[in-house]
Computed example of a mutant assay.
Amino acid sequence: MPETTLPDALAEIREEFLALSQPERLQLLLEFSNELPELPERYRDHPDLFEQVVECQSPVFLFVEIDDDDVVHLFVTAPKESPTTRGFASILVQGLAGLTSAEVLAVPDDYPQTIGLAQAVSPLRLRGMAALLGRTKHQVTAKRRAA
């Protein structure tokens, strides 16, 4: 896919990671894990709305909302004891914030492999992040069809 399909926020996050050494990349991932937003109150008591990302080693659940302006809002829960997974979730929540459904669907599927963490985390964890992105896109596609 052409480089231009990468939204600015995701491109900036990738550049931030690639500018660091491997140990610093892990530290940045931990910083992202602390920035994963809490669920809005309207969703806290509705676990039934969330889809489990079974490819993740930790219990991770996500839900996509598309507002009237076609802007995607991604909500993810991941345990505090799973900082790598929380970090990946936070990268996607922050990187996709404010994008339209078409922009989210245009994000390259291999984005998780391009941020320079392949030597720092296990392939299984990278697959988990790819699954988070894939399930996000799947929910966006389903909600667009239903609209």
Results as ranks from 00 to 15, higher is better:
P2Q: 07
E3H: 11
T4A: 04
T4F: 00
T5F: 03
T5A: 09
T5D: 07
D8E: 13
A9C: 06
L10A: 10
L10F: 03
L10N: 12
L10P: 10
A11S: 11
E12A: 13
I13R: 02
I13P: 00
R14F: 02
E15N: 15
E15I: 15
E16A: 13
E16V: 15
E16H: 12
F17A: 09
F17L: 08
F17M: 08
F17I: 03
L18C: 08
L18M: 01
A19M: 01
L20S: 09
L20Q: 07
L20C: 08
L20P: 08
Q22Y: 00
R25M: 09
R25N: 12
L26A: 14
L30C: 01
E31H: 12
E31T: 14
F32H: 10
N34S: 10
E35T: 15
E35P: 04
L36C: 05
P37M: 08
E38M: 04
R42Y: 04
R44H: 03
R44L: 04
R44N: 09
R44T: 12
D45I: 07
D45P: 13
D45L: 13
H46V: 07
D48P: 05
D48V: 15
L49N: 15
E51I: 11
V53S: 05
V53T: 08
V53L: 05
Q57T: 14
S58H: 09
S58T: 14
L62P: 13
I66E: 03
D67K: 10
D68H: 07
D68R: 11
D69H: 14
D69M: 13
V71R: 15
V71W: 04
V71S: 14
V72I: 06
H73M: 10
F75G: 05
T77F: 01
E81G: 10
E81T: 15
E81N: 12
S82E: 06
T85H: 00
T85R: 00
R86K: 11
G87C: 03
F88D: 09
F88T: 14
A89R: 07
A89I: 11
S90W: 05
S90G: 06
S90A: 10
S90L: 02
I91E: 05
I91W: 00
I91F: 02
I91Q: 00
V93N: 10
Q94F: 03
G95L: 06
L96H: 11
A97W: 03
G98L: 03
L99C: 02
S101E: 07
L105F: 11
L105C: 04
A106V: 05
P108A: 11
D109E: 08
D109R: 08
D109F: 02
D110Q: 09
Y111V: 15
Q113Y: 08
T114N: 09
T114R: 05
G116T: 14
G116Q: 08
G116C: 02
G116M: 02
L117H: 11
A118Y: 01
A118P: 03
Q119M: 06
A120W: 02
A120N: 13
V121I: 15
V121G: 01
S122I: 09
S122W: 13
P123S: 12
P123K: 14
P123A: 01
L124G: 06
R125Q: 13
G128H: 03
G128Y: 05
G128L: 08
A130M: 14
A131W: 01
A131E: 00
L132T: 07
L133F: 00
L133N: 04
R135D: 07
K137D: 09
T141Q: 10
K143E: 03
A146K: 06
A147F: 00
